[in-house]
Amino acid sequence: MFTLRVDKIIRHSKDTSSLFFTTRLRSYPGQFIMLYLPEYEEIPLSLSSPNSVTVKAVGDTTKALISSNAGDIVGVRGPFGKPFTPTTKNALLVAGGIGSAPLFYLHDVLLRKGAEVKAIYGAKTSEDLIWKDRFKHVEISTEDGSEGFKGTVIELMEEEKLSEYDKIYICGPESMMMSAFKLLKDRNLLERAEFSLERYMKCGIGICGTCVLEDGSRACVEGPVFRGDELDGVVFY
């Protein structure tokens, strides 16, 4: 474990913040770190850039984390896990809620590689749509219609000519990823899709066995990013 100092914090909403560290981590989009907030727990978090994590408060540790201050110290192990495979052609990013975090990082890298990137970004209400201007070309949906299209990202996906994209990257709640998986399976596009999965983790290094999927793959080493066809037969929670 090493430590990083928090450089600045962007408070996106009452329950979501981005923590920027003073040091950039040698990493790839899709990878995660095990972040330890002293006195609290160590949790896996996707990187939202080489030097930031974007956190939504769901438990004690994340609640404390979003209200931390510049100058605070956090413990870090990682980065760990298999990243997204980039493309230089055209890419579709599908983000649901806080699932946008790893896709922010991927978005920046893809643009730098010269790819044409479109994002579909959805949440329950407009308040949950954090940092939407990070995406250069984005289509918004909210379930209550408070912003953009009224509905889900899946409905927006259905309207896209999915077969024209070289790569489709998906991250969001399990139910959303399950619907996206079904849609892409129907259109026979699973091999072009990459999903970033979230599982309860303890070690992050493939030892403890807490995060294994139904086929024995470990979300922390063989994942968290899986190609669509690798997930055939995996139960989404």
Binding site: M1, M34, Y36, E41, E42, I43, G75, R77, K202, C203, I205, I207, C208
Partner: peptide, 17 residues
């Protein structure tokens, strides 16, 4: 125990799961 429960050491691991 609550996390952290496993960390790498030089040439090995230290755990208290």
């Amino acid at each position: 125990y609550r996390t952290p429960v496993i960390i790498n050491t030089r040439l090995g691991l230290l755990n208290a799961v």
